[in-house]
């Protein structure tokens, strides 16, 4: 029996991608999870088991910050789910109307915020909402609502919601595009069959189109979840690493950054930083698994 010759081109094709992916992504990921089990005592790296997590969850100083960041993160995610995705779906539903003119123009314009960096978005809104410049108050004044104005980014009770809405403003283009693509892929025959049965307009949307785009809504939800739970840039760009006022806009990303790098007088601690990263990893993993097993596998896919 002769052994089949080794097909060398297969490893050659695979090697670069696998090596870079393993070395720069998987290995550091595993290493971060491992580092979370160590601590630095007297300049030496010591194995401490789950001590870092005990500190993170139960030590009063740490746990207060951690639960605060986690709670804020869930609120941040909730606003995206309740505001960004419905707006995206409505815009997509309007845009996919077959006889709408200028739809390409609207699509391009509404997608503009998504291409801007967090730095631009954060500062632009900071300036617009600033009481010093006064664009927001004078615009509210024009519609007779000046009394509603407050320095939203500077108030503890509003800052996080305001930032979440800014982020919604920035990213609404993504659900819009994905839903738009899903709506376009619904064959005309299905819609026409509905029309023959007297289902038109809004009823057609609720009864025919919405069930057919549910898988896309599921994908958008999980993308939003993963994106929100490793968000950092917008908060850092507009509120700084301290996520002010008084940590009211602190989310897991900024909390990990502060812990890892240190700020003001506190020194950076890579091991606690790794512990927070591991917690983020666990949260994202749970979310993705819930989606894959709980939502996607039960979702009915219609053969179109």
């Amino acid at each position: 029996m002769t052994r089949p010759r080794i097909r060398w081109h297969i490893p050659v094709f695979l090697a670069p991608a696998v090596v870079i992916y393993t070395a720069v992504m998987i290995f550091p990921l595993v290493n971060t999870l491992r580092l979370a089990l160590f601590s630095k005592i007297d300049q030496e790296r010591v194995f401490v088991g789950l001590d870092n997590f005990r500190t993170l969850f139960f030590d009063p100083i740490w746990s207060e910050q951690f639960w605060n960041a986690l709670g804020n993160n869930f609120w941040f995610f909730l606003i995206h789910m309740l505001v960004q995705n419905p707006i995206g779906i409505v815009l997509a539903a309007i845009l996919s109307h077959p006889r709408l003119r200028f739809s390409a123009l609207y699509r391009s314009a509404i997608f503009v915020p998504t291409i801007l960096s967090f730095v631009i978005v954060g500062f632009a809104w900071k300036l617009i909402l600033s009481p010093i410049w006064g664009i927001a108050p004078s615009m509210l004044d024009a519609v007779g609502l000046k009394s509603l104005f407050a320095p939203w980014l500077g108030k503890e009770e509003y800052a996080l919601t305001t930032l979440a809405l800014i982020s919604v403003w920035q990213f609404v283009g993504i659900p819009m595009m994905l839903i738009y693509a899903a709506l376009l892929s619904i064959p005309d025959e299905v819609i026409e069959a509905g029309e023959v049965d007297g289902i038109t307009g809004m009823a057609a949307f609720w009864k025919i189109k919405l069930p057919l785009i549910l898988p896309s809504i599921g994908i958008i939800s999980i993308l939003t979840f993963v994106g929100n739970f490793n968000a950092f840039d917008l908060i850092y760009a507009s509120q700084g690493a301290l996520a002010g006022p008084d940590y009211s806009t602190d989310i897991l990303g900024t909390f990990m950054y502060r812990t890892f790098f240190g700020f003001q007088l506190q020194l950076g601690d890579p091991h606690m930083g790794s512990a927070i990263a591991s917690a983020m990893f666990a949260i994202i993993l749970v979310g993705v698994c819930l989606y894959l097993y709980g939502v996607q596998s039960r979702m009915r896919r219609y053969q179109l």
């Binding site: 550091p28 290493n31 890579p270």
Partner: peptide, 23 residues
């Protein structure tokens, strides 16, 4: 191998930042 490479679609690389900096 395909599954292994697909893992990274959902897991953000930022989680591994501490070790990436070390590396």
């Amino acid at each position: 191998l395909g599954l292994y490479l697909a893992l990274g679609i959902m897991i953000p690389i930022r989680i591994g930042t501490v070790a990436i900096l070390d590396l």
